Amino acid sequence: MPFKRILTELVDAVPGATGAILVDWEGEAVEQFCHFDEFEMKVIGAHKGIILTRLRELHDGLQLGELEDFMITAGNQKHLVAPVGPEYFLVMTMERSALSGLAQRMARLAVDQLKKEIC
């Protein structure tokens, strides 16, 4: 499966992006690409999975539609989290200066590609 290619292309498409990881519902890394320590990327992925689970629980009661993505900005980094169906999710890390709109657009395209590969 071309998960690595999809993640690499995502990171390369967004100036300031530093990594992307596909994670399963248990917080385990399926595939990743990053410009920093791979273990750190796995920790970020697992941590964002916990946040996604809690956010989904809160969101489900609001009848607003399906959660598409969210971004966390802290310090000098931004992390974009996007579900890939009910069992997987994508996390992209980037410098704070990265363009959020571009990152969101490219992440949504990557999610579509990942969904096609998973199904």
Rank of each mutant, 00 (worst) to 15 (best):
residue 5 R to T: 13
residue 18 T to G: 11
residue 54 R to A: 14
residue 85 G to Q: 01
residue 40 E to M: 07
residue 98 A to S: 15
residue 42 K to M: 02
residue 1 M to A: 11
residue 37 D to N: 05
residue 84 V to W: 00
residue 16 G to Q: 03
residue 119 C to P: 02
residue 58 L to E: 13
residue 96 R to A: 14
residue 99 L to G: 14
residue 116 K to C: 07
residue 75 G to P: 00
residue 90 L to R: 05
residue 4 K to T: 12
residue 111 V to G: 01
residue 61 G to Q: 09
residue 108 R to L: 06
residue 64 L to A: 12
residue 60 D to S: 15
residue 30 V to Q: 05
residue 109 L to G: 09
residue 90 L to S: 10
residue 50 I to G: 08
residue 84 V to K: 11
residue 18 T to M: 12
residue 34 C to E: 02
residue 14 V to Y: 01
residue 100 S to G: 13
residue 93 T to V: 03
residue 106 M to T: 13
residue 27 G to Q: 06
residue 105 R to H: 13
residue 12 D to L: 13
residue 39 F to M: 08
residue 50 I to T: 08
residue 59 H to C: 08
residue 102 L to T: 06
residue 104 Q to L: 05
residue 43 V to F: 02
residue 7 L to G: 11
residue 101 G to P: 04
residue 48 K to I: 12
residue 95 E to I: 01
residue 34 C to T: 10
residue 37 D to Q: 04
residue 89 F to M: 09
residue 96 R to T: 11
residue 86 P to K: 13
residue 84 V to H: 02
residue 118 I to W: 00
residue 43 V to T: 13
residue 28 E to M: 07
residue 44 I to K: 09
residue 31 E to K: 14
residue 99 L to E: 15
residue 97 S to A: 07
residue 9 E to K: 09
residue 99 L to V: 12
residue 72 I to W: 01
residue 24 D to P: 01
residue 47 H to P: 03
residue 84 V to P: 06
residue 46 A to K: 11
